[in-house]
């Protein structure tokens, strides 16, 4: 009789132990999943904030206005006097490619600016206008093509 009672108590104790162990396990799994799906939860306590800033800084300082072989890499504009004034005023609305693929004299660059001011919401450039126009006329002047150019830049290949 006593043995039977003891046995029952023992089974109950094991049962409770297992139950609490499983309970704990379930809570752990739940917590883990919760963190996995809500990575923001421990953001402030996390170590990432500092490193994130560092990562950004590298991009900003080293690459943003890098110049290679006389070309401002980010825009493709020629590195010359007035470059950053052009970058800051002429690449907000449209790509710099619209500048670099065109060739005009002073009068026509100025009239292009006027057209943008009249119809495209370009602001008054003030004293920057002279800087910009000088940059454009010096670096992107018209080229003589005549009535028809010869075929250029041909990539020769063997036709099979």
């Amino acid at each position: 009789m006593e043995d039977h009672k003891k046995f029952r108590l023992l089974v109950k104790a094991i049962y409770r132990l297992l139950l609490s162990l499983f309970g704990l396990f379930a809570v752990m799994v739940f917590t883990l999943l919760f963190i996995m799906y809500n990575p923001d939860l421990f953001k402030k306590a996390d170590l990432n904030v500092g490193e994130e800033k560092q990562y950004v800084a590298v991009t900003d300082e080293e690459d943003f206005d890098k110049i290679e072989n006389g070309i401002h890499l980010r825009t493709g504009l020629v590195d010359a006097e007035g470059l950053m004034t052009v970058v800051n005023n002429c690449t907000n609305c449209h790509s710099a490619k619209l500048v670099t693929q065109n060739r005009m004299n002073k009068e026509r660059w100025v009239s292009t600016i006027r057209w943008m001011q009249e119809t495209q919401n370009l602001w008054d450039l003030g004293p920057n206008e002279e800087v910009i126009v000088n940059y454009l006329v010096t670096n992107y002047p018209p080229s003589k093509k005549g009535r028809r150019e010869i075929l250029k830049d041909i990539e020769w290949y063997v036709l099979k």
């Binding site: 619209l98 026509r108 292009t112 018209p142 080229s143 093509k145």
Partner: peptide
């Protein structure tokens, strides 16, 4: 792109 004097716009 072939015009001379060059014309403004996408070439």
């Amino acid at each position: 792109s072939e015009f001379d004097p060059p014309a403004k716009g996408n070439q």
